[in-house]
């Protein structure tokens, strides 16, 4: 139990060392990749809450990434450039969408749930594709990054990275407390046996819906940061393959462990950058690796590490 927070803290500290390292070896692109990793780590953490702890396989989670990103574009268009306000707007929009779509999706189980969340994700995708005021299919570029306390600090890549890392640490800390609190215990209980939870007087639906909404809100914050990192907003952020990638991150890191979700995001983004550097057909290699992991190491990289190093974790 105590190994997980240690691993997560080690991961965060290691990431904090990236900008000085990048400066030392003179490769500023390293910080940009690390920023991307941290953004997707937040998204993966949020998905882990419902998928890992609630066993709700959502295949439309990228929609919340997109809602956050569009919150930046919409706010900026109306002259609101403050990062915190934009995050609140994105999280608010995500909460409404998650509450409505979740209330319908959570009436179903298993394969139905997977397909319905996928369909709601596509619905959001097509909404933004046809929204010509914001570039439709092509998306729209942002004039500048968001401001913080009225200053343009985020224009500096290193400063922006530390802001993202702080958000990641907050998300991890908050979720860690949440899953170890009564709420998390009930959620895990519904994952293990819905019938027993009902028998001792809980209503699983309420807990699941609450988790679904919280998860969407956190993912929207990641979307706000993603839009700022690329300074560009497009429906491609909410493509269904992106939702698939988020699940892949959890699988690679080990589902249902918060530290694993973060590690999985780091590995996935790193792997994508590495393979994309070799060939434009990098998805082929990525698919082959993913297939091999699913067929032969279902517990992900964490499971592989655990098997190779017996006795390392109790």
């Amino acid at each position: 139990m105590s190994a997980a927070p240690k691993a997560a803290i080690a991961l965060l500290v290691l990431m904090a060392l990236v900008p000085p390292l990048a400066a030392a070896i003179g490769d500023p692109f390293l910080t940009v990749i690390a920023t991307r990793m941290a953004v997707f780590a937040i998204a993966a953490l949020s998905l882990d809450l419902i998928l890992g702890y609630g066993a709700l396989v959502s295949f439309g989670h990228a929609a919340y990434l997109g809602l956050g990103a569009y919150a930046v574009a919409v706010c900026a268009r109306h002259g609101i450039t403050d990062l915190v306000v934009q995050m609140a707007a994105g999280a608010g929009a995500a909460a409404v969408f998650a509450a409505v779509s979740g209330a319908i999706s959570l009436r179903t189980r298993g394969i139905y749930f997977i397909m319905i969340t996928l369909a709601f994700g596509q619905m959001a995708y097509f909404f933004f594709v046809s929204l010509s005021a914001y570039g439709g299919d092509d998306g729209t570029s942002l004039a500048a990054r968001s401001t913080l306390l009225g200053r343009d600090w985020l224009e500096n890549d290193t400063a922006f990275f530390y802001v993202v890392l702080a958000c990641l640490a907050l998300a991890y800390g908050g979720l860690h407390r949440l899953v170890h609190a009564r709420f998390g215990r009930v959620l895990i209980g519904t994952r293990e046996s819905e019938l027993r939870m009902r028998a001792i007087g809980y209503r699983p639906f309420r807990y699941r819906l609450a988790a679904y909404v919280i998860s969407g809100m956190i993912c929207a914050v990641a979307g706000v940061l993603l839009a700022n990192q690329t300074e560009y907003v497009s429906p491609a952020y909410m493509a269904w393959t992106r939702s698939g990638e988020l699940i892949v991150m959890l699988l690679l890191g080990g589902i249902g462990t918060l530290a694993g979700a973060m590690a999985g995001a780091l590995v996935t983004v790193g792997l994508e950058e590495l393979l994309a550097g070799w060939s434009e057909h990098w998805r082929l290699g990525f698919g082959l690796i993913l297939l091999a992991v699913v067929l032969w190491s279902p517990a992900g990289l964490a499971g592989l590490v655990r098997r190779l190093l017996p006795g390392d974790r109790a």
Binding site: G244, I247, L290, L291
Partner: peptide, 8 residues
């Protein structure tokens, strides 16, 4: 889901 996503 993941294996068939990989195949895709």
């Amino acid at each position: 889901v993941l294996a068939t996503f990989a195949l895709l």
